[in-house]
Amino acid sequence: MPEPRIRPARPADDDALRELDVATWSTLHAVQPRPLPPYQPFFDERHTPGGYLVAEGRGGDGDGDGRIAGYIRLEVPTPLACNQHVRQIQGLVVAGWARGQGLGRALLRAAADEARRQGAVRITLRVLGHNTPARKLYESEGYAVEGVLPGEFFLAGRYVDDVLMGRSLTR
């Protein structure tokens, strides 16, 4: 199977990314309420195309060539000068039709490469404690649990931990 094409997001990706977010919404990873029509634009002044890498891929049935199959958002976690050496993953989504093809792993690696290119020496993320598939993926890519905020969110009738993970980009 060919490698996915990962590229910077463009303003023209707005509709496809919004549709992907709506289609993949789940309390397994989302703390925001389920999006309902009328849908807001995907990009806004806080979420600009410059913070995203998108993957174009192919579904297991051969469908989806050139379609956006996933994205990852990479940002500076705070505006503080003393924190500019860190990048934070603030979202990773893969379309249902593109799962199981290594796309999440490819996006994580592309984000780490982009963070290094930007001069970062460390990368972090937050993941919900009950999202076992994502946690296993992050651990397999060298991320370690660095903290847990027990019961930080109340989702689908239960309290869920917020797990803080990170890794060095220099090793």
Rank of each mutant, 00 (worst) to 15 (best):
E3K: 15
E3L: 15
P4H: 12
R5Q: 11
R5A: 10
I6A: 01
P11Y: 12
P11W: 13
A12N: 04
D14P: 11
A16V: 04
L17S: 02
L17P: 02
L17F: 10
L17T: 03
R18G: 05
D21F: 11
W25N: 02
S26G: 01
L28C: 00
L28W: 06
P33K: 08
P33T: 06
R34M: 08
Y39K: 04
P41G: 05
F42V: 01
F42D: 00
F42Y: 15
E45P: 09
H47T: 06
H47F: 13
E56Q: 14
G57R: 06
D61A: 14
R67T: 07
I68Y: 00
I72Y: 04
E75T: 14
P77R: 11
T78R: 13
T78H: 11
A81N: 06
A81T: 09
V86P: 02
V86I: 15
L92W: 03
V94K: 01
G96H: 12
A98L: 06
A98H: 03
L103N: 02
G104F: 07
L107A: 03
L108M: 15
R109Q: 15
A112W: 03
R117M: 06
N131D: 06
T132Q: 13
T132A: 14
K136V: 06
L137A: 07
E141N: 10
E141M: 11
G142L: 12
V145F: 12
V145Q: 11
L155E: 01
L155I: 05
L155K: 04
R158Q: 13
V160H: 05
V160D: 01
M165F: 13
M165N: 06
M165D: 01
S168H: 10
